[in-house]
């Protein structure tokens, strides 16, 4: 992240304000969406998480400058995502996969 001339910074500041707007709109959407009672719970969850992910991506990409960041940082985050996904998916899978003749609920 070198070579931040004043021009670029000023341009970046405009982008920050735009992202701010997007985040506010996103928040309002999440809240509104939660007032609509979909019959499908998965849909409700999916929508809420989708909006949250979009918002989070904007924060990460622009506020945290990830969009112009270096490869080594992508690499670190790539590992982290992999392990994070492993932790999530495998624990859930393990809790869902029951033995054939289980007495457990």
């Amino acid at each position: 992240m070198s070579g931040h001339g004043p021009e670029e910074i000023k341009k970046a500041m405009k982008i920050y304000l735009m992202v701010f707007g997007i985040l506010i709109v996103g928040t309002i959407f999440t809240v509104l969406a939660s007032y609509i009672h979909f019959d499908n719970f998965a849909l409700t969850v999916g929508l809420a998480l989708l909006i949250a992910t979009v918002k989070a991506s904007f924060v990460a990409l622009y506020f945290m400058h990830l969009i112009e960041e270096r490869q080594s940082i992508y690499l670190v985050l790539g590992f982290t995502t992999f392990f994070f996904a492993g932790l999530m998916i495998l624990t859930l899978w393990a809790s869902g996969d029951k033995p054939l003749y289980s007495v457990m609920p």
Partner: peptide, 22 residues
Amino acid sequence: SGLFWHFVDLVWIFLFPILYLL
């Protein structure tokens, strides 16, 4: 320090829907 702060914000962006809305 800003990067840390954004992360704190980012966590909240997920906490809010899962705790308040779902």
